[in-house]
Design a protein around this nucleic acid. Structure first.
Lengths: 146, 146
DNA sequence: CAGCATCCGCGTAGATACTG
DNA sequence: CAGTATCTACGCGGATGCTG
């Protein structure tokens, strides 16, 4: 037991920081940070979509992942799912009011991203180049020491 | 046929696939959406931290994941890493200007999260409850059909 | 059309041991 | 103190086949 190092804790969870587990930002990021969710929300800003439309517009997403993503967003009340009992079946997805307010916030993040992505990519390239040089010189010095 | 409803897309998407790969929002989310990065950035708003401090303050993070997270943030130019060649070694982490501007944007997201997390959790509970009922009644009807 | 069930490979994260 | 190295396992996500 590690009860000495931290306060009251549900034993079910391994060693979770209470703050971590309930941190709103983390929880919200978990909602929209997977590979497709943000993209889906972005598309739904443009209006209601059917499943197949989403699947076509987000090329590269598998049916399984799209279903999972949509379920998750629906579960959180971000996306509304409407099933029409027709033949063939038809399912429409749209943003709830909550989803729209989230989308607006994500739009802020998108703006930051567009303004700064080049910086990030440049930093990344510089870092990788430096790392490559470092590992080479390390290899050289290792070879010397033999 | 339905192009009338989805008038002006945020961006003219040639084929979405290329856009997907380079979508700034996705790329930025990839930077900060992992389990710990947002938390680290949040902590660093408060000022410079040493590795061990971060590790203690983010209980539950393994040393490996913290190292990885910090490297990734450093690589993207969000976090600055300063090594002091002392004994024992000392490494300090802080936000770069780019990191600070990202932190400010994340702060917006945090505010949204704090305002809406209860809604999300309530929706989630409602959804799960409904799903439980549905699966029970499905089981009952399946039992009937035997 | 929309979605679930199943199988499976690969990557990611945890645990542990060792180093500058 | 702040890492790296290695081994392992679990879960995510892809592919396939089937249903309402």
């Amino acid at each position: 037991m590690e009860e000495q190092q931290q306060a009251p804790q549900p034993a079910a969870h391994p060693a979770w920081n209470p703050y971590l587990a309930t941190c709103p930002t983390r929880q919200v990021l978990d909602c929209i940070a997977d590979k497709w969710a943000a993209l889906v929300v972005g598309l739904l800003i443009g209006g209601t979509r059917r499943f197949g439309e989403l699947r076509r517009e987000i090329q590269g997403v598998s049916q399984k992942m799209l279903t999972q993503t949509l379920r998750s967003l629906e579960r959180d009340g971000i996306v509304r799912r409407e099933v029409y009992a027709t033949v063939p079946p038809k399912v429409e997805y749209s943003l709830t009011p909550l989803g729209e307010s989230l989308a607006a916030t994500l739009e802020e993040l998108r703006l930051w991203a567009e303004r700064n992505i080049e910086d990030v990519l440049r930093n990344r390239a510089t870092f990788d180049a430096a790392a490559a040089v470092a590992s080479e010189s390390a290899a050289a010095s290792a070879a010397k020491n033999r």
